[in-house]
Design a binder for these strands. Structure first.
Lengths: 207, 207, 207, 207
DNA sequence: CCTTAATCGAGACGGTACGTCGTGTCTTTAT
DNA sequence: ATAAAGACACGACGTACCGTCTCGATTAAGG
């Protein structure tokens, strides 16, 4: 764990630019993993990265921005949303991805960021752009494909409806700290599917 | 220097028990209002309440627990959920109440608490019991009344469905920091109502 | 060591008067022995004696007075000064007693008291009366007996001369924290004896 | 809010190294003068010096070491011991210097240090080296000069004899808090002079 | 023998100071 | 010019004792 992770940039080996950035990001993520966002300290990141505090503050005036950048830097490339030919399967697969992400240090960091920065409009915006909107966007992709197949009524292709599932996941996560599979199934089968089902699928017209 | 903003509990008027509790809660909420949860300091609360830090720490080892107790102590009694005879109106009225609460210092505090304490299972539980569950419960009341009137299909009386609206409100609040009325209307008309509508009433929505 | 030294004055067995005094003095001396005067705390004495702080402060407004009383209370009865028929032997014996006392917790306490209270004239006076003057007085007794035998010139029977030996012992003790026997011998043979020797006996010392 | 409560070392005038040392020493000595060693607080020294507590603790883990350094730093250069050509006059002059020093804040501080730190061998050693030994050394100088003039018997040039006068002064000071001139005269004429007088000055040989 | 006024234990209270930690700024030294 | 290293002022942390003060419970003294 304590991988003597320095040793090459000391006496006379000063890092700059990308090398320095990477070292700082790596240190940030290690701190994030080990102590969490709430207890992540600029000082500790600097120490772990063998960087000076000044080098940190020069670039990231606030902890939140450093963490945001660090997360983005090492974020695994978002895979394509699932495309199995069936909306329900696609949704379940995708929600499982989200649930996993929520449970990771990254998820914790994002939640910490959101709580930490509700006074910093810019960061809030950043988080939305980077972490929240892509999710909505990919869910919309899934729903759009479903609509093309007739599984989803076109009028359900709204931002609001796409955001229901992530909102419910977050909701559940914040009080339960884990999201078992039945919850995902319930969300899909009892909430999303009924909402997006094409009207014609319902028998019984008027009267 | 220190303006006489207290004046009645000094020499020979030492407060104990409930009186002291109240003074501390009041000070906590004032701090909460003025600087917010993130910048609320035990030291400042103590100073404002003219209490010793030890008196605080004796009761509340952590800031979060103090704030939770302070909020609960001064929480306006939850009024009865609206009962206008119409589910849509009831829902809108009630969501407006939630939106207002989210926007208040109390709302900020609760969000701060939730972010601050996702490592403290007990506090998480407390928050759910005190602040989240009652909302779900009252929404369920509204829906149950609607079901009795035939406005809501009985199978929609689930915890999951009742939690959609609060989740979407929180979702919206965290990125927009305000909840305009059209958002509430959209949530009710495009999400909740379609979900809870009795099947037999399910004719053409559009047109 | 930790002789469950309470257990009988708890629930429903409240001590008063001498019993309480003794318990407090005992606790005081134990604290004195274990942590020394500088780190002796009223609070700890109270706790160890199973007495309330108020019971302490009622009697001893200051720590120093408590310690002074405690020491006096348990002080071994001052034995008579040695009387071997020879001044040099008497002096050596007696100085050994003083050296032992200086080295004990009591000695440490007295030194602490003296340093602690050089702003409290009353306590200073108390210490002098209780602990310092008796020493001078007994040394004077030894010298007076010697004078009666012709071993000491009568003009040497002064307070000043009697106080030399204790002063030198304290001097040595404060920097060396121990007083080996040769030091005592040197003080007696090179300082006291030459000073008190009858003039007529004063022949060539050297050679 | 935070009124410009200091002066010239704020924004952009941060002191380091010697400048900061001096400011801290000065503040320490002022505190020492005003409230004495026993009530000298690190916090107050820091405040008065407009330094952070951390800057203090970085250098001086204990109050005693700070005070020792501060005293040494501002100690008036020890003048040469008097050299009037007469031992008695030299001794009296010099003892008057010591008496004055004992009576000053510095004297109080040294006494406080000695009491405070009899568990810290290193500090005890420091005090001896800095404050006690020089006195003995200068007294020895006086006596040595006297011996060269035949006023002092060579065998009296011992550490023990040189330390008698300071010890008696301290002794007297600790119980009387002042040293009137007659005391000095008595010490010199009744103790030191008799002890150091050359043997040959005494008539009456053997027979 | 029974009240009643003291006094006990326990420990909460408003304070002051402790010694530590983290922040964001700034200086020094070495590339 | 920029890096690391870390000193600096600041402010908050959570703890320890201080000396004062309730609060019952109990106990000795007086009726």
């Amino acid at each position: 764990m304590n991988t003597t992770d320095s040793a090459d940039h000391r006496r006379g080996l000063r890092r700059r630019g990308d090398v320095l950035y990477s070292a700082i990001f790596q240190a940030t993520l290690q701190e994030l993993t080990q102590v969490g966002y709430a207890r992540l300290k600029m000082e500790h990141v600097a120490a772990r990265a063998h960087a000076s505090k000044r080098s940190l503050y020069r670039r990231w005036p606030h902890r939140a921005q450093l963490v945001a950048d660090a997360i983005e830097h090492t974020l695994p490339r978002r895979g394509q949303p699932p495309d199995t030919g069936n909306v329900r399967t696609d949704l379940l697969d995708y929600l499982r991805q989200i649930a996993d992400a929520l449970n990771s240090p990254t998820g914790e960091a994002i939640r910490g960021l959101m709580a930490d920065t509700h006074r910093d409009p810019e960061l809030t915006h950043t988080i939305r752009i980077r972490f929240l909107d892509p999710t909505i966007s990919e869910l919309t992709t899934i729903l759009t494909r479903g609509a093309a197949r007739g599984e989803v009524r076109p009028s359900a292709l709204t931002h609001r409806i796409a955001s229901i599932a992530p909102a419910l996941l977050r909701e559940h996560f914040q009080t339960h700290h884990a999201i078992p599979d039945p919850v995902l199934i319930e969300i899909v089968d009892d909430v999303i599917i009924p909402l997006i089902r094409p009207v014609t699928a319902h028998t019984k017209t008027t009267q």
